[in-house]
């Protein structure tokens, strides 16, 4: 497994697990979860500085940008313009040119607004951003995002924060079939087996946040997810046995005592 790297826009990563930094109890827990997960890429959100509290702690004091690749997201953006503006701010803030683009359709489902996502992706790619696009599990959209020049396409497994797992593995499989950029399942992963399933399907990686942060023991779940992604990847590379309806004995028939 030593040479099996995730390659994103020419940059190599050892870990195929990307994790979000939201919803943890505190920054200490965030830090610990990131460490234990083995993730090298972590998502962050871009938000207003609190102007009335100058003692507010800074996430980046806990998640060191020198140690991790910071992947700013456009969470909370419902228009292409807002998403583009957010990415530009993120690039100014830290020189981060790799972004997780998400343009949301409504607050109830947080499903992506596909036309707006495509519109924003076009502009961002033109401006030199390395765009990782959150999208639905629709193969046609995934292809369009790839054609536009997105560095990675990230179909949802289920709604953000739902923990419902990979609802449509067949669509993910179709997306994977002729994808030429990395495909990562983003959103929906609720427990280790969900992550393993995504990887066994052949996904290049998994991005999750709530699946870890909302576990009773977030740190332990971070560890579980690390193993699940690795196990799923190895199983995919190993090539699973064919499924059969009837039994095949594992022990030899010959030499059975009489």
């Amino acid at each position: 497994m030593g040479k099996d790297k995730l390659v994103l826009a020419g940059r190599e990563y050892n870990s195929r697990l990307l994790i979000g930094t939201g919803k943890y109890k505190d920054f200490e827990e965030t830090k610990k979860a990131v460490e234990v997960s083995g993730a090298e890429i972590v998502t962050v959100a871009v938000r207003r500085v609190n102007i009335t509290d100058d003692k507010e702690e800074n996430l980046l004091d806990y998640v060191d940008p020198k140690k991790y690749t910071i992947l700013p997201n456009t969470a909370g953006c419902f228009t292409a313009d807002d998403a583009i503006r957010t990415c530009r701010l993120a690039r100014e803030a830290g020189g981060w040119d790799m972004v997780k683009l998400e343009v949301l359709g409504d607050t109830k489902t947080l499903f992506p607004d596909i036309p707006a996502t495509i519109e924003a992706a076009r502009v961002l790619v033109k401006e030199g951003f390395i765009v990782m696009a959150y999208t639905s599990d629709d193969p046609i959209t995934a292809k369009k995002l790839e054609d536009i020049g997105c560095a990675a396409v990230m179909p949802l497994g289920a709604p953000i924060g739902s923990g419902l797992g990979i609802r449509n593995p067949y669509n993910i499989k179709i997306i994977l079939e002729d994808a030429k950029v990395p495909i990562l399942v983003d959103a929906g992963v609720g427990t280790a087996s969900d992550a393993a399933i995504a990887m066994e399907l052949g996904c290049d990686g998994v991005l999750m946040n709530t699946g870890i942060a909302a576990a009773r023991d977030a740190i332990l779940m971070a560890s579980a997810m690390k193993k699940a992604v690795e196990a799923g990847r190895e199983a995919y590379l190993a090539g699973r046995m064919p499924m059969k309806l009837y039994a095949t004995a594992s022990s030899p028939i010959e030499g059975i005592i009489e």
Binding site: G20, T21, G22, K23, Y24, F27, T30, T43, V44, A45, V46, R47, R48, V49, I51, N58, L59, L60, I70, P72, N73, A75, R88, L89, A90, E92, A93, G94, I160, G161, A187, L207, M208, N209, T210
Partner: peptide, 28 residues
């Protein structure tokens, strides 16, 4: 309009200016 860090020192603010100052926070 984004003001690059290199221009923060030379950019004098005027009455009525509107600013957005953002930072990175936890997110997924």
């Amino acid at each position: 309009e984004i003001i690059p860090r290199s221009s923060h020192e030379s950019t004098v603010l005027k009455d009525g200016d509107e600013l957005e100052i953002v930072k990175m926070v936890g997110g997924g």
